[in-house]
Design a binder for these strands. Structure first.
Lengths: 332, 332
DNA sequence: ATGCATTGTGCACACGATTACACAAACGGT
DNA sequence: ACCGTTTGTGTAATCGTGTGCACAATGCAT
């Protein structure tokens, strides 16, 4: 690699240096194309010497294929999503696909952000965030056919979806808590507008209804530890509930801390607390949370599966269903 | 937005529809270019109707400017880095820059991954990971001038760097622990080969040396909770240490849990435990960690500042220094 | 020696935008 | 009425690759 030239060398310049045409340079970098192996070796040697690599932007323009994948997420800071994102990024990288992250939380104009990403001709879109509507995603990425993590089967044939079902596991958990003698249940949502949140809540509400119970209180947080802490103080003190089902694990940890610290109540005897997601942190010794857990590996396997179907250009709507399981800790 | 056409409409096609040339289309989308405002309005209307947006790949090829930024990180799952990444992503999005994430942990060939990203003509590179050498980053992104988060001043003029200094804060923390009567110190590294780890360790080693002490044991983990837990059991049981300085906050939480659960020892009376990074989770009530903390906002401000200097094409090497502070919890 | 299939290479165009240049129209000042 | 400036638009080249087509060279079978 000679020199620190600011400018990148082009295929035409390299062609001159190697005494061939620029078409031959291109062929040297395409695994199966008609080119003499001696020529290829010589070109690759010269290329290495001058630090040449084909320009992926130009290639994308020509190919109509960018190898970029947009990941639409709420945030990367929140561990509840980060584990899955991490897995997916690894799987993409192994396929030589590059992830572009779009963070929707705290961002004023999510639609504009998605439109911006769509101008980069991304090959795939994976929507994790519950803050964008399915219809918006379809409209903006109408050439890409997004993959959406939903919680209900989608009828829209311009979308592939992963459906997650936690009804059965929620029933198991509620069963245990009711048998433990708890009576006043609260649900602590992560957002007040998300369809994902509504469906998760429904799993638990149905399980309660089956036993002649219902949520006495409905509270709203923002998926953060602090909001879990703050809301739990109110729920326990003002509303006297003895069971809190939380929208994710991080809020559940906040709620548990509030119970213990502010009100001196312990789980699971005085109060039951349940999380959702099943992140690694929930199993830490200091947390030991009871949570409605999703198998992250299976989940990302499903996403990759859908991406591969898109690549193979199999037509028609696709949907994969996953089931949650109860993971028992000492909080319920 | 009429129709669900699979193919995206091009500037030339839109030109025909609007009765102008494709050059005029382009001008309609460039804020300051000579074009009649009536024409522009008409074009924008037709564009909206047909869902046209200029192709960013083609634009990048012409402009020599991709508006892509590569973020080289260890992982996005680990909260110790995620907070900063989150902040940076927001700042980039506000500038209409799109982040491409490169995860180095667990990835067999980091260099190949970086080379792949470099073919996309990224405008900027920010290296957070301590798993890639500075020289590799400079070689691969020689046209981009990377921004590197280092812990020492860099002499290389093809790099901008952010230097972080925690010597003083480490001294404060060691002072307190020594005055509390602790005698046998261990350092628990996050990796065994990282220059960042070596420098962090040096801050504490120097503070100990000043008081006639030294680390009795050196252990190695992998920045994870589990490794913190496992190593701490050994350190406490086999080596009988009474103070553990950890490479990051997550390992410190693991160590604290191990002390409490496996050996029945409590902080800070029986044993002192110190983290590093100062993540939000460290301040949670259930953790309440004493940690060597960095101001994340100031840190990302510095990164953005360097990016802007690059954009303004100011020449010469750039370096910004930040100082850590001690954040006191109940673990030391 | 002739015919045909195969291999290796160059030419030229396409991908979809931006932009320097040219030029016509409109406008204002004397 | 004439000239110089400003304004708006089209033409054509450019960014760096990939690839269909043409064509020469080679190998092989008759």
């Amino acid at each position: 690699m000679s020199g620190m030239s600011r400018r990148r060398i082009t295929s035409k310049e390299l062609a001159k240096l190697a005494g061939v045409s620029s078409a031959t340079i291109s062929r040297a970098f395409s695994p199966d194309s008609r080119i003499g192996s001696a020529t290829r070796d010589r070109i690759l040697a010269v290329a290495r010497e001058h630090g040449y690599q084909p320009n992926a932007i130009a290639r994308s323009l020509n190919n109509q294929r960018s190898r970029l994948v947009a990941l639409v997420v709420n945030a990367i800071g929140n561990p509840c999503e980060a584990e899955e994102q991490q897995l997916l990024v690894h799987r993409l990288q192994a396929r030589q696909l590059l992830p572009i992250i779009l963070c929707c939380a705290d961002h004023s104009d999510r639609l504009q952000l998605m439109r911006l990403a769509s101008t980069y001709q991304v090959d795939h879109v994976v929507v994790f965030s519950d803050m964008v509507s399915m219809q918006d995603a379809v409209d903006i990425f109408h050439t890409t056919k997004p993959i959406i993590v939903s919680f209900e089967p989608l009828e829209n044939e311009n979308v592939s979806s992963i459906r997650i079902d936690g009804a059965e596991a929620a029933d198991e958990i509620i069963d245990k808590i009711v048998r433990d003698g708890k009576k006043r249940f609260a649900y602590l949502s992560g957002t007040n507008s998300s369809w994902i949140d509504k469906l998760r809540r429904k799993w638990f509400a149905d399980a309660l209804a089956k036993r002649g119970l219902a949520f006495e209180v409905q509270a709203f947080g923002d998926y953060s530890y602090d909001s879990g802490f703050k809301e739990a103080v109110l729920l326990l003190h003002r509303d006297k509930v003895d069971a809190i089902i939380c929208g994710n694990d991080v809020m559940a940890i906040g709620a548990r801390d509030a119970a213990r610290r502010v009100l001196g109540k312990n789980t699971p005897d005085d109060i039951a607390i349940v999380g959702q997601d099943g992140i690694a942190m929930a199993a830490w010794d200091c947390n030991d949370l009871t949570t409605l857990s999703l198998d992250h590996v299976a989940f990302i396997d499903a996403v990759v599966e859908l991406i591969e179907r898109h690549d193979a250009e199999i037509e028609g709507p696709h949907s994969i269903t996953l089931t949650c399981t109860a993971r028992w800790g000492s909080t319920a």
